[in-house]
């Protein structure tokens, strides 16, 4: 057995319920840190940012699943759905903290969504995640059929780019870290371009 195959055996042994539970516990853990004063003296912004970063990182992992398999043979495909749904969950938590703890007012939240470009872009990412989350189950996959299902899920690329652009724009200055994420996302999307083009031509 190659090293990659050994990793795959191990990965497949992890039941997906464990991925869901462990993944869902991270925001709970963050929330506890924030409540108990372990996220600094201004926990609302700290929690908001921690959840945004967690969502971004998870989206990058989801994007990396296919190239990772192609280049190393390591396959996380059996957990891709769980990772995708977790990313959606993290964005929901991020949005909830923004709405309920940060802005605290639906009217003002709406004003921010239409007025502030970095919020508009983040919100677009969230809205595009909704159809993906709704179709991340076997029934939807059967109903749509693999071709249409895959077409819907190419939205992932758009969402990741929106998320990374949002991250760059949130900063007041050109910071390195968000630019690294944006570059990573663009590179991972670029690895799909030949295949996407072929599919579009077919």
């Amino acid at each position: 057995m190659t090293a990659a195959q050994r990793v795959n055996v191990w990965v497949r042994k992890v039941p997906s319920w464990a991925v869901y539970i462990l993944g869902a516990m991270i925001p709970v853990w963050y929330f506890w840190l924030a409540v108990s004063g372990q996220m600094g003296v201004e926990p609302i912004n700290a929690l908001e940012r921690a959840l945004g970063l967690l969502a971004m990182q998870t989206l990058v992992v989801v994007l990396a699943v296919t190239p990772l398999r192609r280049w190393t043979g390591i396959s996380l495909v059996s957990h891709r759905r769980a990772l995708g749904l977790l990313a959606f969950f993290y964005v929901c938590c991020h949005l909830a903290v923004w709405l309920l703890l940060d802005v605290q007012d639906p009217g003002r939240a709406w004003a921010d969504i239409v007025k502030r470009p970095y919020i508009t872009i983040g919100m677009a990412g969230f809205v595009l995640l909704l159809p993906l989350a709704a179709t991340s189950n076997d029934r939807a996959l059967r109903k749509l059929g693999p071709v249409r299902w895959r077409r819907v899920h190419t939205l992932t690329y758009v969402i990741c780019v929106l998320g990374a652009v949002h991250y760059v724009m949130v900063q007041k200055v050109w910071e390195i870290e968000p630019l690294v994420y944006l570059a990573l996302v663009l590179a991972l999307v670029a690895t799909r371009l030949p295949r996407l083009r072929r599919r579009a031509a077919a």
């Binding site: 924030a34 409540v35 004063g37 003296v41 201004e42 926990p43 609302i44 929690l47 703890l101 605290q104």
Partner: peptide, 10 residues
């Protein structure tokens, strides 16, 4: 937001 009000400060 006045710093120091915790996670639920108005």
């Amino acid at each position: 937001r006045r710093v120091g009000g915790g996670l639920f400060s108005s």
